[in-house]
Computed example of a mutant assay.
Amino acid sequence: MPRIGSSDLDVYPLALGGNTFGWTSDESTSHDVLDAFVAAGGNFVDTADVYSAWAPGNSGGESETIIGSWLAAGGAARRDGIVIGTKLSQHPDYSGLSASNVAAAADASLERLQTDRIDLYSAHYDDESVPLEETLGALDALVRAGKVRQVGISNYTPARIRQWLAIAQREGFQLPVALQPHYNLVKRRPFETEYAPVAEAFDLGVTPYWSLAAGFLTGKYRTRDDFANAARSGSVDGYFSDEGLAVVDAVSDIAEAHEVELATIALAWLQAQPTVVAPIASARILGQLPALMAADGVTLTADELSTLDATSARVPE
């Protein structure tokens, strides 16, 4: 299995996204998906403390709580076999990245996850009101305390990532090992032009989110009416264009040739990209999982990769 950056975290080349848990997937369904994911060889689960505060009746932490109840049901052996990645800075009760907030948010996540350590703890969004030195020192303290194994970055500008790395090196803080960017076949920039060089230079393992473009790359949204009432309609709308639909058509043709679903090809393309360790994709129901897991068994030809590259390059920024 690939390793996340310079860390000791060996992971299956697909991360199961936990953003649906407690939102569009109830606890029982979420547990079924997690069970099937592990049974098929998966071991890397991604979540965040804010998931899913946006849903009616939720307050944040629902996804972590469901993952925690699943981990607890499986005992120590299950926990030892799973790499848990979660993120902080956006939970309504722990907003921002001050030192006190980092410490409190971590403890709250540990309690919800029913575990004694977070394998990969990432800053979800930048907090420019707090000096980076303060945030990094707080994260480093969590590593030294054994509460966190590795540190990651998500949604920071390339300039701020370079500042983070320079400060960590200067102060002897734990270096980040992972970068979680927005990246998929219909959203290739700015990752490829601005973030990939940073990831390569500093050995950051890339775990892209929205790998399937909120479902757009599965082919189920061919017209605006198709997603008008979908839970992710606002997100899908950002990908919808004639050029984007041309990408879906190209993915469909290649999927047909391999006798797999469109999601499988979209993920296989990401898995073939330099620096990408494990794309993140979620399964709202059990039936969506096989197409995600199948990506690891698909090897795209040079011609297929070239077709996807050329078609997706035409999508406007």
Score class of each variant (00 low, 15 high):
Ala105Pro: 04
Asn155Pro: 10
Val148Cys: 06
Asp119Ser: 05
Arg144Lys: 14
Thr65Glu: 15
Gly85Asp: 11
Val143Thr: 05
Ala77Thr: 15
Ala72Trp: 13
Pro92Cys: 04
Asn101Gln: 12
Ile82Ala: 08
Ile66Pro: 06
Gly146Ser: 08
Asn155Gly: 06
Gly137Asp: 08
Pro92Ala: 05
Ser95Pro: 05
Ala104Leu: 11
Leu139Pro: 11
Ala105Arg: 01
Pro158Glu: 14
Glu134Trp: 05
Asp140His: 14
Leu132Tyr: 06
Lys87Val: 00
Gly96Leu: 07
Leu120Trp: 00
Arg79Gln: 11
Ala72Arg: 14
Thr135His: 00
Glu134Val: 14
Arg160Glu: 07
Ser63Thr: 11
Glu134Met: 09
Ala76Leu: 12
Glu64Tyr: 01
Ala145Cys: 08
Ala159Ile: 07
Ala77Pro: 06
Gly96Tyr: 05
Leu165Ser: 01
His91Asp: 07
Asp119Thr: 09
Val102Pro: 00
Asp126Pro: 00
Leu113Gln: 02
Arg162Asn: 08
His91Glu: 08
Arg112Phe: 04
Gln90Thr: 14
Asp107Phe: 07
Val148Thr: 02
Ile153Asp: 02
Thr157Phe: 09
Leu120Ala: 11
Leu132Phe: 12
Gly152Glu: 03
Ala106Glu: 03
Ile82Thr: 03
Ala138Tyr: 00
Gly74Ser: 04
Arg117Gly: 08
Ala72Asn: 13
Gly137Gln: 10
Ser98Pro: 00
Tyr156His: 09
Asp93Leu: 13
Ile66Leu: 07
Asp119Phe: 00
Ala106Asp: 02
Leu120Asn: 08
Gln163Thr: 15
Arg117Cys: 15
Ser69Cys: 11
Ala72Gln: 14
Ile67Cys: 06
Ser129Cys: 06
Ala76Pro: 04
Trp70Ser: 04
Tyr121Pro: 07
Tyr121Met: 11
His91Cys: 10
Asp126Phe: 07
Leu165Pro: 01
Glu111Gly: 14
Gly75Phe: 03
Arg160Tyr: 04
Ser129Asp: 13
Glu133Asn: 07
Tyr94Thr: 03
Leu132Asp: 05
Thr115Val: 09
Ile153Val: 13
Leu88Cys: 13
Leu88Phe: 10
Gly96Glu: 02
Ala105Val: 10
Ser154Glu: 02
Arg162Pro: 03
Arg79Ala: 13
Ala72Lys: 15
